[in-house]
């Protein structure tokens, strides 16, 4: 494993554990939401770490390879074998992009709900807000 990957996985581990800790243990609505966001970020970092290759080509950006290319006509294109040796793994980047979009939408819904709950109860403490639920 590359040093970058080790670092990325360790950071991701810290992020995910901190996120889970915040969701489960912390008593503040916003801290729970931030924790949820941490988990998403950590998972994204894991995905990026999987696709990493030092000095690798980025398949989405550089058209180094064409399936039907003949090296003589397209001298700047690589043959498939060569390309596959050099390129970084493209799939995780696509997954991360999708997950960022999903994360943003869930985050916005959760934040909107926190605003509504704060206006109703004038507190961010989960303990107090959800205690009031038992009574009504």
């Amino acid at each position: 494993m590359e040093p970058f990957q080790t670092g990325a996985f360790l950071t991701a581990g810290v992020l995910i554990v901190a996120g889970f800790w915040a969701i489960i243990m912390m008593d503040n609505l916003l801290k729970k939401v931030i924790g949820a966001n941490f988990v998403g970020d950590g998972v994204n970092l894991v995905l990026i770490g999987i696709g990493y290759k030092p000095g690798g080509l980025i398949p989405e950006v550089t058209p180094h390879f064409h399936a039907s290319a003949i090296p003589s006509t397209f001298s700047h294109f690589l043959a498939f074998n060569e390309f596959a040796e050099l390129a970084s793994y493209p799939l995780p980047f696509a997954l991360v992009l999708t997950n960022i979009v999903i994360g943003a939408s869930t985050l916005s819904v959760m934040l909107a709900l926190s605003v509504v709950l704060y206006h109703k109860y004038q507190t961010l403490s989960v303990q107090k807000i959800f205690e009031a639920m038992e009574e009504d």
């Binding site: 949820a36 988990v39 995905l47 959760m110 709900l113 109703k120």
Partner: peptide, 21 residues
């Protein structure tokens, strides 16, 4: 219902994070 939805979303982020990881 706002509270129920908030709870659903918060635990949903646990589950979503777990599945994606």
């Amino acid at each position: 219902s706002h509270k129920a939805a908030f709870k659903y979303m918060i635990f949903g982020s646990i589950s979503g994070g777990s599945i994606l990881l």
